[in-house]
Amino acid sequence: MNWQAIKAIYVFEMSRTFRTLAQSVISPVLSTVLYFVVFGAAIGGRIQSVEGIGYGAFIVPGLIMLTLLQQSVTNASFGIYFPKFIGTIYELLSAPMSFMEIVIGYVGAAASKAIMIALIIMATSTLFVDLDIRHPLWMIAFLLLTAVSFALLGFIIGIWAGSFEQLQLIPLLVITPLVFLGGAFYSVSMLPEFWQAVTKLNPVLYLISGFRWAFFGVADVPVGLSIAAVCTFLALCLGLIWLIFRTGWKIRP
């Protein structure tokens, strides 16, 4: 295992985060505050509570998930797309490192950054609502597993993308809608029965539900299903990555 190489990539990627601290951290925090103002204060004031939880607190796990998914996907996809775009990927390919080591470096950095921002948002949210976390270890486990799985997905997107437009496509067209429709801001039980069934096809529902369970002990789907869903997704992404590297798809002709 070429640990030096993993460390080099990780440090390099993280330094990019700190170099662009304003875009990297301030903008997600600002948009979260906006969500709180709009959903929590303006609309939440009329909703009172969902499943016995104040609406302001209820949306916190959904908000964190929204940012976590967006951040891990965009960080990882950009992280590997950029060297591909400017050509510096030659160095990764000529270095004595395996594809898995490249993935660990980029995905590790992307997931770290996403978790960092998730924690900042969590801290920001305590300014607005009282949070008490029922299952802190599970909360961290969900945070980690989700960040890593979606960073893997982002990595795959970064390898696949042939342009900056394509890079934005999946986060914008797939992930954001899935999060919004996955019960980030409402409980699925509030929907008519038919739409409840449809929502259960949305994989993101299981992530948000599990994450919310870790906070409040309340879930839309059994927590076991949530864990199974994250692990399945993780396995799926790992399998895809393995396939990409075996065939050298798009990077090593």
Binding site: A8, F12, S15, R19, P96, M97
Partner: peptide, 16 residues
């Protein structure tokens, strides 16, 4: 955007 010395250090790290 990276600085000369950091890019050079990065390359050394990549090669283990």
């Amino acid at each position: 955007f990276e600085r000369v010395i950091n890019t050079t250090r990065f390359s050394r790290g990549l090669f283990g």
